[in-house]
Amino acid sequence: MRELKILAVVVVFTLITYYLVEPFAHSHMHKHVEGEGYAYADLPALDKKGDAARGKELVMGAGACTGCHAISKEGMPAGMDPTMAAQSYGVNPPDLSNAGAVYEGKFLAALIKNPAHALMVEHKFDAAKGKMHPMPQFYGAGGDKDQEVADMVAYLQSIAPKTEELTSEQAYQLACGRCHENRYAGWTQIGQTPKFKKKQDELKFNLAKADYQDALTKYMGKLPPDLSIYIRSRGEHYIKTFVENPQAYLAGTAMPRVGVSPEAMDKVIEYLEDSGDAKRHERESVGKKVMIFTLVFALFAYLWKKSLWKELH
């Protein structure tokens, strides 16, 4: 009984100390931002029903999207390589093949109408001051502009992979990968690092990457960080809420709101876990076995102690 009381004292003081230096201290050091469920409540709802066929005509035609964006799934290649694109626009405009699956519909609609507003970078791009966002606004193709935008969104959604088919690579590459390297996953802003057969190929690739990063640094103000182990340095909650609304954490940051759907965000997290916490499944399964071992060990240790101390008391 006395030993249990002593144990209780030790445990209570340990837990108080733990509480104070971990949850309590961290709650004071870091701003807590609640998730908004990727609702993008400030953006208007997408209530018009879009027509994908009409949307395709707009995207390829009057919308002029393919002037800058590739849609490889529809056989529309990129006009220039990523490095040249970054040198022209600041960042490589994304291939739109998966855009309908990665971005929320209402976000896409808002983005087409006014990119700087949807991306929450109006502090950086203000048309009144002559600072235009590299993606021009869609001013309409002569009909009901809202309907036209809804049609384009419907088209992008119709060619995108279904939610359950979207891979974590597709989600990361489109949502994060044009600005953020992930060296542990072999990803660079200009694409997956290939296996090089010749030294020259490696040098060419690295040169293109360095040029891309220079252009990106100029565009963003600083080179966006490598996300290899952001899952350990920032954690899932921070990443999820930061992506949803970067301004809530870092007012004035050049990082745009990404406008991902909740499903795509889960895929991004999976990608970050694969690069930054690759052995998590092994850890959980080995952990369970080790816990069973220690419990059995404790049982035998108890029986051994009991058998010896029977003679001592």
């Binding site: 340095s233 952990g287 080790v290 816990m291 220690t294 060990f297 240790a301 051994w304 102690k305």
Partner: peptide
């Protein structure tokens, strides 16, 4: 034998931390 019993209880605590609650020992900033 008493030491080992105490050690065994300690190991339950220790390996719980190693596998399921290691963050406290590895600061995210690092």
């Amino acid at each position: 034998s008493k030491d080992m019993f105490v050690v065994s209880i300690y190991l339950i605590f220790f390996f719980y931390l190693v596998f399921f609650h290691y963050d406290f020992a590895m600061d995210p900033v690092n």
